[in-house]
Amino acid sequence: MRWTGRNLGLTLLLFALTIAVWEAVVRILQIPIFILPAPTQVGMALYRGLASGLYVEHLKYTLLETLLGFIVGSALGFFLGTAVAMNRYVEFFFYPYIIMFQSLPKVALAPLIVVWFGLGLTSKVINAALIAFFPLLVNTMVGLKSADEDRVSLMRSLAASERQIFWMLRLPNALPFVMAGLDVAMIFALIGAIVAEFVGAQRGLGMLIQSMNFNMDVSGQFSILLILSLVGLLLNRIITLIRRRVMFWDPSEKDLLEPATDDVAAARVGRGLPAEAKEGVTP
C-alpha cells in the first residue's frame, strides 16, 4: 500500500474514531480509572510526565541500556555465529549449547542476572545483550552457510582461497540475514532492558511502570507504553535505514515491484529465510 493522500486521510480518520469510541465507552460505562483510563486521562499523564522531565530522564536511561545491550549482544552473536559457521570444531562444541539456549525463554534469566550484577546499568545491559545475541547468532550462521553452491564452485574454479571465498562471497551473501537479525535484536534488546528493570532497578521506564503499578496509576502506565512503542518504532526505523545503506544492491530496498532476476528472488527469500531462522529464537 502506498501513502497517498486518501490513504493517509482514511488512516487518520480511523485512528480518531478508535480514540473517540474508547473515550465514549470509558465514560458511558463509567469504567474506573485504575482499570482502564480514557484517552484524555492518558494524554494528561503523558503531558505531566514529559513536562516534569521525569519521563525523559528515565527514557534516556532505558535507551542507553537498550543500545549498549544491542551493540554488545549483536556483536558477540555475529562473531560467534561466524566462528560456528566457518569452523567445524567450534560448531561441534558449541552447537549443543546453542540448541539448548535457543529453546529457553531468555527473559527467565533476568532475576538471576539482577542478583549477580546488581540493580545498576550492568545487569540491564547484560540482560538486553543476552536476548539480542541469539537472533544474530542464528542468522549469521544460516547466512554464511547459505552461499549458493554454484557461486562457491565459481570461486573455487578461480583458485580463490577460503579467505577470499569468505570475504568476497559468504559475507556479502550473509548480509540480508544479518540485517534481519539486527532488526529483531534491536527490539529484543528493548524487551531485555525493560524486563530487567521490572526485576530490580533504580531508574528506567520499566522501573517506572513497575512503581506506577504499585500506585495503581494506570494512566501513567498507558502513557509509558505509548512512549515505548514509539521508541520501538524509532529503533526499527534506524535499522531499516542502515539496511538500505548496507544492501544498496538489493532492488527490493528501492521498492521496485518487478524482480528482474532470480537473484532478486533469492535476496527476497534471503529476507524471508531469516524470518524462519528467527522462529526458534525467543526473547
Binding site: D150, L154, S157, L158, D250, D263
Partner: peptide
Amino acid sequence: PRRDIGVVFQSPVLFP
C-alpha cells in the same frame, strides 16, 4: 584449479 582457464556455467552465477 588453475588460473589459465575460464569457466562458464549453465547459469550466469553473478554476484548481485
